[in-house]
Amino acid sequence: MIPATFDYVRPGSLDEACQALASDEDAKALAGGQSLLPLLRLRLAYPSTLVDLGRLPELTGVHDRGDHVFIGAMTTHDEVMRSSLVNSACPLVALTTATVADPAVRHRGTFGGSLAHADPAADLPAVVLALDGVLVARSAEGEREIPAAEFFVDYLESALRPGEILLGARIPKLGDGWGYHYEKFHRTAQAWPIVGVAAAVRRSNGSIQEARIGLTNMGPTPLRARAVESALQGAELGDQVRQACEQAAEGTSPSGDLHAQPDYRRHLARVLTHRAIRTAAGSP
């Protein structure tokens, strides 16, 4: 299929980009295009103008900012998963990014594009949410910080305002003693996850001190498994962890679709959370 017509601008500066997006409410930012282009080709989206962010060097790269890592929105998945900084300071982002789509798509698809698209079935939103990332956006009015918990508003809807561009995200460094895992459950390697669980676990002396859990595709936005997180505090590996994970589906509202019904997704959330926690805690 063939996209409908649109205008195209390739701004040379962030200000120009903000202006282009602000001046036309049907304009849309083009990052890597790996979600947008299929939508255009199927004529499921009709933007008036695409604002190509592909030539703005200030949007790319991974930066060490002391207590956090800043990942530029236009950094490709491929760059993120290979970044030694991301691998050492926020490994959950690196190992999850390596599960996104396939190598060719990861060469084009971007970290920020995936977040701004706000698809609850995408892998990275749950990770950024679990890690309490902070998204940084910019418009003509200036920069604004949006906690991940407030960024994902609804299905395919983020907190970005018209004329606002996502600059990237701050991912807090969790420090020593943490283990990580992303448990992705999909029918084929190419298929979107039916459910995914991103877990970060701090463990000492055979029990879990702290856990962060993000759930993929368990509602219209990525979700934290807060009940499990609380129940895991001080839980010993084994039955206590297993019991804690039984609460993984609390507060979720998964949809039913071609690939799974809500009750099965809830069941998977419990099983996969347990697996993610055990793996993150280094307890196979």
């Binding site: 299929p38 084929t188 390697a189 190419q190 071609l258």
Partner: peptide, 16 residues
């Protein structure tokens, strides 16, 4: 038809 694309009509890749 709900399976109009290869994203919905699942075909196995080498990894499967």
């Amino acid at each position: 038809l709900l399976t109009t694309t290869m994203a919905d009509y699942l075909l196995p890749s080498a990894a499967d």
